[in-house]
Design a protein around this nucleic acid. Structure first.
Lengths: 196, 196
DNA sequence: GTCTATATACCGATAGAC
DNA sequence: GTCTATCGGTATATAGAC
């Protein structure tokens, strides 16, 4: 079982969009093999079984998603600027990567213990520890992890619900624009609804 | 193919928790049949195929989730009370019904056009049209549908991430309590982070 | 309306030649 | 490292007896 060969990477990159679109059980080893241009049997020279292939594909997709966040936050000055930079990071990271987002959603719903740990360690934990100080500086009145969860949901739900929102009254394509989402979320977070 | 018989309902109620836990492809007709106490072949006296069974099960689960929301909102007086009542509705509805929530998440990720329409028509549209006036009254500065999306995500993400958050630093069981979530979300929505 | 038996198809994984 | 061929298992769905 070799590691990091050309074919090995090609397999991962062929498998990821398939798993993202159809889920673990919705993708056959034959499907992945066909996309790569080899037969299913050849896959077993690179991975012991389907589950291992899936696991390595997840690691490959989830790694190194946090690059440059701390630097971006450090460069900005006012709290409002830092908030905008942070929200912008979320929106750009997950808004532009449909595959990453789909995998994330599927992993959170399936809730397998081992894979949840992978998700926590490679995606949420790095982001969270890197910006925990920033989160705390945002508000002393709110619990840090809850605030982190709220901000994440605030951003992600605009993407998660995008296909369905098109069917609701009041929908407008502008609502899917990154700039629109950033402005809306920052404005809502900064001042809330101004209700006493 | 009969309708609404005792067995018909028993099948739907047996299928729902299975689909919620394991997804469409993760549940075999045999599994549903075993839970009901009949054989797989007998299922085809009630549904033409697996897809139709799944579709009817979704309709059955998603119907009538909005009962009493408008009345609750009308009874309260101050904006803050109405906001709390509304958030409370979301948290109680989806927080207490694990099956409904799992189905909802799965349907949003799978993004099949026909089933998304079912989701929009039976879950989000009824809630949205019923409280659109309320949403607008919350803030003239924010787009109604975007605000609806934000509030929904703000609440739902505390549930969606619950299994994974347990693995993050700073986790505490209190953060999963309904009362804690309601208070956090209402406080965040009402005044935001107070950043100018 | 339920049963047993079965047709048909697909999937994960292995054996062995090249 | 890839191929063809195939095994064993499981899935949906149907046929026909009761």
């Amino acid at each position: 079982m070799p590691k990091q060969t050309k074919t090995y990477i090609k397999i991962l990159e062929a498998a990821l969009p398939l798993f993202a679109a159809f889920g673990y059980k919705g993708v056959a080893m034959r499907d992945i093999a066909n996309t790569v241009g080899i037969t299913a049997a050849a896959l077993y020279n690179h991975f012991p079984n389907k589950e291992a292939l899936y696991f390595k594909a997840l690691e490959y997709a989830f790694d190194a998603q946090v690059a440059g966040l701390a630097e971006t936050l450090a460069q900005t000055q006012t709290p409002r600027q830092r908030l905008t930079a942070f929200i912008g990071f979320w929106v750009e990271t997950f808004g532009s990567d449909v595959i990453l987002r789909a995998l994330l959603q599927r992993e959170m719903t399936d809730a397998d213990e081992t894979r949840l740990r992978l998700l926590a360690q490679h995606v949420f934990q790095p982001v969270y520890v890197e910006i925990e100080g920033f989160i705390q500086s945002l508000s002393a009145r709110h619990d840090s992890l809850m605030l982190f969860t709220s901000i994440a949901g605030l951003v992600m739900y605009h993407f998660e619900t995008a296909p369905m929102r098109k069917l609701l009254p009041g929908y407008h394509p502008d609502q899917d624009e990154h700039a629109t989402i950033i402005e809306h979320v920052v404005s809502l977070l900064a001042q809330g609804l101004n209700i006493s």
